[in-house]
């Protein structure tokens, strides 16, 4: 099939970008979306044009490296990562608009590649349990209720791709933060640092320039791992608790 691609091209962070149009023929419906872009890039190289830069690594939906705004939807029309989106979700003759994540906290590096190091800094601000290697007690010394463990796991599946931020009209990273707060807060091991964790992470989130949450739910709809909105409620609850405790 044949598609028309409108792609954001921007040589580097300092330059101004613009949308460019490319026609691509011979697209197979079995291709993944990124393989389609690989084919485009091979074409561009053959023509002596700079290939389109985009991030991807595992290409099996787990590393969180890929992420494109496709026709106005983070990761495109299916609930999955960009790398797991296939061209069979499109039709012959379709026009496909491809943009990078838009967030001032995720500055564009080149074309469709953005800098998501803000997420690392949010984790550095408290998204962990402090336990030095070798100081851990025997694993069975603290039983964890099965339902708590399941909930912790479900929200720990966050891949840090940034789709929540990209989809949020406020550019908020609350779903990302809430997932970590809930993951660690559900477990007995996470209790001692519960207050400092939420306060630190939220302060970093705000300092990075992410917007505030207005609970409208675009994030969870875009999340390839279907992290539910509950985690934001949990985040808010924990922040309250920290306020009450004078943090």
């Amino acid at each position: 099939m044949k598609v028309t691609l409108k792609i954001w091209r921007q040589p580097d962070a300092a330059s101004k970008g613009a949308m460019h149009t490319y026609e691509l023929d011979g697209v197979s419906s079995d291709m993944s979306f990124l393989e389609m872009l690989d084919v485009l890039n091979e074409d561009l190289i053959a023509k002596g044009e700079d290939p389109v830069a985009f991030d991807s690594d595992c290409r099996e939906g787990i590393c969180g490296m890929c992420g494109l705004m496709i026709n106005g939807q983070a990761h495109g029309p299916e609930v999955t990562t960009t790398c797991q989106l296939h061209m069979r979700s499109f039709k012959d003759g379709d026009e496909i608009v491809i943009e990078p994540w838009r967030s001032d906290a995720f500055p564009v590096i080149k074309d469709l590649v953005v800098d998501r190091s803000a997420f690392d800094r949010i984790i550095q601000a408290g998204g962990y349990i402090s336990v030095n290697t070798g100081s851990a007690p025997e694993a069975h010394s603290v039983p964890v209720p099965r339902d708590d463990a399941i909930r912790a796991f479900n929200v720990a599946t966050c891949i840090g791709c940034g789709a929540c931020v990209a989809a949020c009209p406020n550019g908020s990273a609350s779903l990302f933060m809430g997932a970590k707060i809930t993951h660690l807060g559900e477990l007995p091991q996470g209790q001692p640092e519960r207050d400092t964790r939420v306060v630190g992470m939220v302060a970093q989130h705000d300092a990075e320039g992410f917007g505030g949450c207005t609970n409208i739910g675009e994030c969870t709809a875009a999340c390839p791992k279907e992290i539910p909105l509950d985690v934001i409620s949990r985040l808010n609850w924990d922040l309250h608790a920290a306020l009450r405790h004078g943090r």
Partner: peptide, 22 residues
């Protein structure tokens, strides 16, 4: 065996049985 202890302490959500054990 130390690895499991370490990871559990870090909050790795391993699958658990109804009794709460791994």
């Amino acid at each position: 065996t130390n690895i499991i202890d370490q990871c559990v302490a870090q909050g790795v959500p391993f699958a658990r049985e109804y009794g709460g054990l791994l």
